[in-house]
Amino acid sequence: MELHQRADQIRRDIIKISYKTGAGHLTSSLSCVEILTALYFGGVMRYDSNNPNMPERDKFILSKAHAAMGVYAVLARAGFFPYDELFTMCEKGSRLGGHPALDVPGIEHHTGALGHGLSVSVGFALAAKVKNSDSRIFCLTGDGELQEGSNWEAALSVAHFKLTNIIWIIDYNHLQLGGTVEHIMDIALLREKITAFGFTVSEADGHNVYALADLMNNKTSDRPIAIIANTIKGKGIPLIENSPNWHGRKPGKQEWEAILHQIKLTHDDIAGA
């Protein structure tokens, strides 16, 4: 399967989970489909889904933890747990919660509150250095999330400790719960800000899975790497793309009719496995 086809498959999985369970943050998950696909299927991360605790594995930390649905889809497709389990999300007794917990194979750290993931990545990266391991740590933050000051404490320390084994990816879709990032608390000149903190910063179309994979595979930088992925929140569903007020909202019945029409799927298509 080509990489872009894998991304399409993951996007469809996310829509199915949302349709079947009503769980999760649909638009936030759709925003980072290509980022997650590049990480797990683009020859970027070293992992073994049959041995999730393989010592020499790379690690992925989902700091924008409300995009759990996207990570679950990728982990299931990568073989960390059975595909059908995806459709238990947020049901009674399920392992798959609204934010990822340690019970889920492939999840390294229980995240949820924003502004923690980059600090956690610093800890993993320092440990890798002490152990002389070449393991890399990939951290995905949101954009509104960067309003939390702890990210900038963490960014200072990534550069100070010369943690070139960290790859920090920012899902820059310009929307947060209450509206646009620019209106609520702007993080503009993001590239310049992060560059000033001591990172090598690249920008990419966050829905070009090939370009993302290439940037993530850059192992030649002598500085920590940050990738600003310019994305569209809700990507793939025109009704909700780049539209405020869809952060944690579930589509209603009529909205699902419109969505299915737009993405050319029937109820039977989406209700099936």
């Binding site: 390294e108 750290h109 502004g115 923690h116 600090s119 956690v120 990545s121 610093v122 800890g123 993993f124 320092l126 440990a127 890798a128 002490v130 152990k131 702890s150 404490e153 963490a154 200072l156 320390s157 100070h160 400790f161």
Partner: peptide, 28 residues
């Protein structure tokens, strides 16, 4: 020198990093 990390006046980052560091078998 290899086991002492100075985080500066940034307690949140220090604590978050310590949590992950411990997962690699160390006792921060």
């Amino acid at each position: 020198s290899r086991r002492v990390f100075r985080f500066g006046i940034a307690e949140c980052n220090m604590v978050g990093a310590a949590a992950a560091f411990s997962k690699e078998g160390f006792i921060p």
